[in-house]
Nucleic acid binder design. Structure first.
Lengths: 185, 185
DNA sequence: CCCGTTCTCGCAACTGAATTGCATCTCCGG
DNA sequence: CCGGAGATGCAATTCAGTTGCGAGAACGGG
């Protein structure tokens, strides 16, 4: 346990604690890799994890990284997801939940032309009781409204050749999710 | 060259016509592959396309299938998308639009545990005027309601077992319905 | 109807991410 | 301090997709 990188020691501590809480073996690769996820606010590819390993621990094998990440998913600590680039990205479940929580407070606009998703202004989320009837056994947590249509950018491009940019203002944050696949073509 | 499969001759005809309309060369591989997409109501992997080639045309090379599919995407006829299994699936753009149209008439339920998306009963879609304020320049087409929560299956598993989260192991394809896109946001 | 240009096709070899087999090493409970 | 279950590292393999290149077909012009 030589003190690793000075940059993210807190994450390393947290990682050790969580592993111990799991009742699982606390090994150096697991600590480092979990610390990576804890310290990152965006989902990481296996390669990104390797690059960001604390302690410059290039000592950890690629295969071990794969195995530990899959193991974390199995333990319910992490989430594994592949995007349109066919590469897996891993993130802490709780970070994912935190991101979702933010999005819970507003609605979204989905452009059916460029496939991007925008955040609408806050407090635009519908009330819980707006939920339609759901099958028995299903538990409603919250209701989300998505507006579909054409975004300003795509609309401008269609109407004429005048790329009247700047139409956007108001409360539009750009695409929220890291790894959000904006229109590939 | 003998007359191909008797099963989907209409699709073959349609395929030839569309290729001609494009002003592109009408080759046997293109016709067969496009016919596959036309004749399928779900997105197909490259392998699925090969398996479903009309005329038992095993004569068509894997590489050619890849190239033609990518070419169709380039021409705006098809859509290419990778799921959580890291495999590309191709579908006709217009089929995709048709599917979207169907989903437009009802709401969805998203299970935050297993990440699957279910269709709720028809006529549960909110009225257009339910849309919150959108930035200027954005054109609203329709509004969609998504209910988030825990599905019956996951709910039952939680009550019974302890290992609610991890046991099911994530990482696997979520969508129960073929062609049902698990909504990213 | 034939010909040549140009675009496609098929074969084979290659890439890059992820997985598997196996021997070695290391946590951790006793 | 020791032993064994379980984790790690290395090498080889799989799997989906990509690239290079020469042979072959489509189609417009003669």
């Amino acid at each position: 346990m030589s003190s690793p990188t000075p940059s993210l020691p807190a994450a390393v501590d947290a990682a050790q604690e969580r592993l111990r809480a799991l009742g699982a073996r606390v090994t150096q690769p697991r600590v480092c890799i979990l610390a990576c996820l804890i310290g990152s606010d965006i989902p990481l590819t296996h390669q990104a994890v390797i690059d960001r390993l604390p302690g410059g621990a290039e000592a950890i094998d690629r295969v071990t990284v794969y195995r530990v990440l899959d193991w974390l998913v199995e333990q319910g600590l992490a989430q594994k997801r592949a995007g349109n680039d066919r590469v897996f990205r891993f993130s802490l479940i709780e970070h994912e939940a935190a991101r979702a929580e933010v999005h819970r407070r507003h609605s979204h606009f989905h452009c059916s032309r460029c496939d991007r998703t925008f955040c609408l202004e806050a407090d635009s989320a519908p009330p819980r009781q707006a939920a339609p009837r759901v099958p028995s056994g299903f538990a409603v947590e919250h209701v989300e409204l998505t507006v579909n249509g054409i975004c300003a950018e795509c609309g401008a491009r269609t109407v004429a050749d005048a790329p009247a940019a700047g139409a956007t203002e108001g409360a539009v944050d750009a695409s929220p999710n890291p790894g959000e696949p904006t229109c590939p073509n």
